[in-house]
Design a protein around this nucleic acid. Structure first.
Lengths: 248, 248
DNA sequence: TTATTAATGTTAATTTGTAACATTAATTAT
DNA sequence: ATAATTAATGTTACAAATTAACATTAATAA
């Protein structure tokens, strides 16, 4: 491994793309030499060759943090949620795809707040932004990148929470909000009780499938943000119980 | 966005590579069509074009979890550390590049243990393995992916720890082990005191630069694993104070 | 139905990649 | 130190992939 190759690898580690033509000029060697370097890096699993260059190859643990992009509806819901977050507050963001989208938009916003979360993807998105991130401790679930268990709940006692933003696996205009996991429900229950205000962010189709365990009744939440496809019947039920309903 | 394009994106989301030739056959279209699809995906930031195809583009939060590969010495040290981990124990793995390498090797091992850590990369590496992962809560540091602070320390009280494996920023055969960060030192002190045994894993060059804050004196640790470049003088000092020294 | 637009296919020219061999630089043995 | 050997780099001709321009087909609107 020579100096040129080390410098090229350094660039890859900095997540830079390599252009064969450019690097050949920089190092004053034939393009073929850079090409051979890049072939070596690909064999070593460091790079992926592109047409005319190479890009860094991301290692496996990092790939676990890839979360699918949010739907258009989720993006709109998240944008609306952001408007309801006061500056300089303690926000609890629980795990979920819609809440992750809230985190993404928070990362790009000017809000200076403190976010408490049990979701590793949320923490990852907010890492190295203006936002202070606090992770609840606890057991890492084997199927999703979030923390649950008695210690997670105990951790919540350490903080004052102004606002909770959470999603749900299922919902009902009469009953309230549901999740599929019993342990997760316990954690959500505690969060709802602890925080001064609760905003539910969820796509409207969740209202057509109540899930396993209830973690909050409708009257326990302050605001529900969902999309316009919500049935008129459900909408009126929610508003009648005095809950703020925002349709996007 | 048509059906073909949706299916191609699905593949990318599953982290699969696309081959223009293959996909052209699968969807019974001209290679040019697939090429155009892939051009679109690149514009959207979903894919990176390679020579003859495309690979999924990893999103930014995931990229934060990329940690440089361990050195040859670190790999050897980690391998030795693994031999000293009993099956069915509670292991505390603190944050650091050498401990991360221990985690990588643990992930590939047959050990069935529970790992408590304050490092997000360690948690990521051990995610979805046989190993149960517990994260301490606390504040996410802005420069490194680990958790520190009073709540982190309080979290440690919740667990019994058989063995602590940790690295250091600096070391001295007389004084003991050091770290650069005051808050981190507090956390490390507590870990050392809590755990029945402590193994230090560190490259020998750390013995030539004592760092800022001491978190453990030499007699508080059980074993030191380092490379053979350790000076004979340091080696004899360590063994004379009754500490097990393993040179790899 | 026809006009218009969008999507896909086809082709030739360009660029990039490969493989084989030539040349130079670096090691090793003598 | 010099020759022999090996490794690294350069050069060339050829193969493959990409691009760009235009032709064709399918889809949509007038």
């Amino acid at each position: 491994m020579n100096v040129r190759q080390k410098k090229l690898i350094e660039k890859l580690h900095k997540l830079e793309r390599l252009s064969i033509e450019e690097e050949a000029v920089i190092f004053k060697v034939a393009p073929m030499t850079i090409r051979r370097d890049i072939q070596l890096f690909e064999k070593q699993g460091i790079a992926i060759r592109t047409h005319g260059g190479a890009v860094p190859r991301i290692s496996e643990p990092a790939q676990l943090f890839i979360q699918p992009d949010a739907s258009a509806a989720q993006k709109k819901i998240a944008r609306k949620a952001l408007e309801l977050i006061p500056d300089d507050c303690n926000l609890m963001l629980s795990a979920g795809t819609t809440t992750l989208e809230v985190a993404r938009q928070l990362a790009a916003s000017d809000l200076r707040i403190c976010v408490i979360t049990n979701s590793l993807p949320v923490a990852a998105v907010l890492f190295q932004t203006k936002i202070q991130v606090i992770l609840t401790g606890g057991s890492l679930r084997n199927n999703s990148l979030d923390l649950i268990g008695p210690v997670t709940e105990k951790n919540l006692d350490e903080y004052y929470i102004d606002l909770l933003i959470t999603g749900c696996d299922g919902a009902s205009a009469e009953e309230g909000f549901f999740t599929k996991d019993l342990n997760l429900a316990e954690m959500e229950k505690k969060s709802v009780k602890k925080s001064s205000r609760t905003i539910i962010v969820t796509e409207s189709h969740k209202f057509r499938k109540p899930a396993f365990v209830k973690f909050a009744s409708m009257t326990e939440v302050s605001t529900v943000i969902t999309d316009k496809k919500l049935s008129g019947e459900d909408a009126s039920k929610i508003t009648k119980s005095g809950i703020e309903l925002v349709l996007v």
